[in-house]
């Protein structure tokens, strides 16, 4: 949506409003003209005093209400004739953005609390969310890994869906371990059929590879051959970090101290093989800075146009006008027993 989805109301045929000029004339002919028809004149009155007027309050009220409803109905019908419509402006992207897949570590150590007030995992999720919001035109996917790796969202421009899935991600759903190679290979595989010119994979991890199925170096070379650039982000600060998390399978809570850290050299190598960059995030602030860098490093030219879509509102007006005029008809012809 353009400008946050604001929309305006317009009249597509304002000329029809000229008909409103005739309304007072017809109103005069019906209610004010001295010689108008459809009524009786009583010659009974006190000389010089008041004329004969109906004294029944409810009848007079109903009569006036029905007149009001009738003319309001007529005015609304004339407005309907001028085609009221709501106009939406939508920005349409004309260029193909890039494809980005986040490969996020969800091993138990990601629960370490060195990104106060968040854990490493929560901090990573928050930063990814903010990044996604700024990349409207890019297809973004999500792979998570621990002992195993799984595709959570394929590269898509449906960011709403992506953010929903990201929210639902939790630690240790894929076991205890750090299968960096598997994660990269899976992410690269899902970028294989992409038609984007730029394909980027962003790995976020706080540990070293300890699953031997696919070695990270091999996976990085596979990614390079598929034309995928891999950026690696090492998460965590050195030293003893308190940790607390719940195993989603057993429901048991764990507490302890983490001293493990990622291998900076290994992650730097992975990035270099594919032409990407390696970043170290020791705090929330540095993680934010890294994503800002990524945002400026990975750009493609972007063109867009504004498309205007109108939604006619005439039916609502016609319906309302119709109801008011029918109300007048029923009131006068049935309740007040007017004859003509």
């Amino acid at each position: 949506m353009f400008e946050g989805g604001r929309n305006v109301w317009v009249l597509e045929q304002p000329v029809a409003l000229l008909l409103l000029a005739f309304v007072p004339l017809v109103m005069y002919l019906r209610h004010g003209a001295p010689n108008r028809g459809g009524r009786l004149r009583f010659p009974i009155s006190v000389w010089g005093g008041r004329h004969f007027v109906p004294r029944v309050w409810s009848v007079a009220f109903l009569y006036r209400l029905s007149i009001l409803a009738f003319w309001l109905g007529v005015v609304i019908c004339i407005v309907a004739l001028s085609s009221p419509a709501r106009v939406y402006r939508e920005r349409i992207n004309l260029t193909r953005g890039m494809d980005i897949v986040f490969v996020l570590d969800e091993s138990p150590t990601m629960a370490a609390m060195d990104f106060a007030p968040y854990s490493r995992f929560e901090a990573a999720k928050r930063i990814i969310r903010r990044f996604v919001r700024g990349r409207e035109n890019d297809a973004i996917g999500l792979v998570s890994f621990a002992r195993d790796a799984a595709l959570r969202v394929p590269p898509t421009v449906d960011h709403q869906h992506l953010l929903k899935e990201l929210d639902q991600l939790s630690i240790m759903e894929l076991g205890d371990g750090t299968a960096i190679g598997l994660g990269i290979a899976l992410g690269a595989l899902h970028l294989q059929s992409s038609s984007a010119e730029q394909r980027v994979l962003v790995l976020l991890t706080d540990g070293k590879n300890n699953v031997a199925e696919i070695l990270p170096g091999v996976a990085a070379r596979v990614a390079r051959d598929l034309g995928v650039r891999v950026h690696t982000v090492g998460i965590g600060s050195p030293g003893e970090i308190p940790i607390e998390f719940t195993d989603p399978h057993t429901g048991r809570s764990y507490r302890g101290i983490v001293t493990d850290a990622y291998e900076a050299d290994a992650l730097r190598d992975l990035a270099e093989i594919t032409g990407g960059n390696f970043f170290e995030a020791a705090s929330l602030g540095s993680l934010e800075a890294i994503f800002q860098t990524l945002d400026t490093v990975e750009t493609v030219e972007r063109r867009a146009r504004v498309e205007v879509r109108t939604e006619s509102l005439s039916r609502h007006f016609i319906f309302l006008g119709f109801m008011l005029i029918i109300f007048d008809f029923v009131t006068r012809r049935v309740l007040l027993r007017e004859r003509l």
Binding site: A139, G141, L151, V153, P154, P155, T156, V157, D158, H161, L162, L189, H190, L191, Q192, S193, S194, S195
Partner: peptide, 15 residues
Amino acid sequence: TRLLPLTEDNAAIES
């Protein structure tokens, strides 16, 4: 429910 968001990823479509 939306099982798969719009994507070009053939592997994801197949699975």
